[in-house]
Nucleic acid binder design. Sequence first.
RNA 1: GGCGCCGUAGCCAAGUGGUAAGGCAGGAGACUGCAAAUCUCUCAUUCGUCGGUUCGAUUCCGACCGGCGCCUCCA
Length: 470
Amino acid sequence: MPEFRLYNSMTRSVEPFAPADGETVRMYACGPTVYNPAHLGNFRTFLFADLMRRSLKLAGFKVRQVMNLTDVDDKIIKRATEQKKTVREVTEPVIGMFIADRDYLRIEPAEHYPRATDFIVEMVDLVRRLEMKGIAYQADDKSVYFAIDRFPGYGRLSRLDTRELKTGARVAQDDYAKENAQDFALWKSATPDDEACGAAWDSPWGRGRPGWHLECSAMAMSLLGETIDIHTGGVDLQFPHHEDEIAQSEAATGKPFARFWCHGEFLLTDGAKMAKRVGNVSTVEDLRSQQVSAAAVRHLMFSTHYRKQLNLSGAALEASMEAVRRVGDFAGRLAAAPGGTPALATVAETFRAEFDDALRDDLNAPRAQAALFVFINHVNAELDKRGSDVAGLAAAREAFARADAVLNIVPEREGVDASLEPWVEQQMLARKAARGRRDFAAADQIRKALEEKGIVVEDTAEGARWKKVR
RNA sequence: GGCGCCGUAGCCAAGUGGUAAGGCAGGAGACUGCAAAUCUCUCAUUCGUCGGUUCGAUUCCGACCGGCGCCUCCA
């Protein structure tokens, strides 16, 4: 069996991957900051993590995944202050929306969804460890900072040593309290606003709240151990977020924080990064209201490799909707087929090998999906022969099922309103009768009436059936 | 300015030092009372441009053009 290979941002190369303990992959995925609903760009990254965990499982590994919910940060506090709410009141409903969107997109839940505010003790402890080692210091503004010049490895992930700062940029006047402009906050001293909205905790350095980077380090190490196998996130998190996580964690433990750093590329709209400040975001809710199925979204997101930018467009979405329609029809046909041909066993085996190879090769989902369509084509051709071989059919079903356990791109078969269903069935019977007496004018009229309700009638060898389309 | 990624048919998109997967759309045919679905055939002598290395490059190197991102909160 070919090895599992992943691109590691730290080494900038594709490397063989296996969990450190040989069995369970400890994976940490940077999650959402819950101050308003995540957009599709965020979800591209979460879908990337979903692809990762499902591919790892397909390869035979167990997975223990943590995805954090950042429920204290500047934006949340700002919102809470504006709305005169507590941070909890701001984040609670947004977390609910996140879960709903996650489920809609069929993202397999991680094992843990820790909230930053539930790990204050662990965070304070981490800062204390850093302080004892002389790497963290409390500045005049009472905040505690990480001294990057006391951590020799700082900047390895983003190759800071090879960079020059943008000329004339960022003089950091507001951060005069820090010893070094690039030092980052571990613990921020509380402001009156922080206190007002419940975003302040006691600590050895006074009332305050955790810095963003600290949350991930503390939660990852608490739940997964001091060295985790895989850490994922969007490319924009590489610097400074992940760089700072590495610094804090490794300075405290003296051990490597993550063995593999994996970053997903951006989702673009109109040729620009999808971001709230650009004003080009769309949400899962937007898609739902446009009748775009989760299957279609997944197909689209998996049709481009995760390390390549993907431009979201109406045309691309429509292509995916149609592609997934085909997958759905195939799934129905495969399930209902009375028999197949012996050749299906070979078709299934070929598919299985190519599909697995593709995913093992740095999660090449586009290639995996291509293999699926080749498989569908071959199986359809075999089923057209109307054979009665059950072993071949079973092999095809099995191969399809395990592939879809990763992709999950079979669209939900849409039903009609319960009140409409008896009418539909009645029309189908009437049409059958009309066709029986070769009254095709009447039969076509019924077809047309059904079509107006968005129902397509298909005549097959096993009789007529109907399906709902948009 | 520094660091990095990308540029493959109408659109989306894999891929390899030896001559281009797959999806959508399109064309022709089969099947069908008509459809739908499905199947078959077809759809890039060519992979941004110009050079170089090579027996041979889309794939390696260089330059250029174009697009995107990071360097600041950010999936």
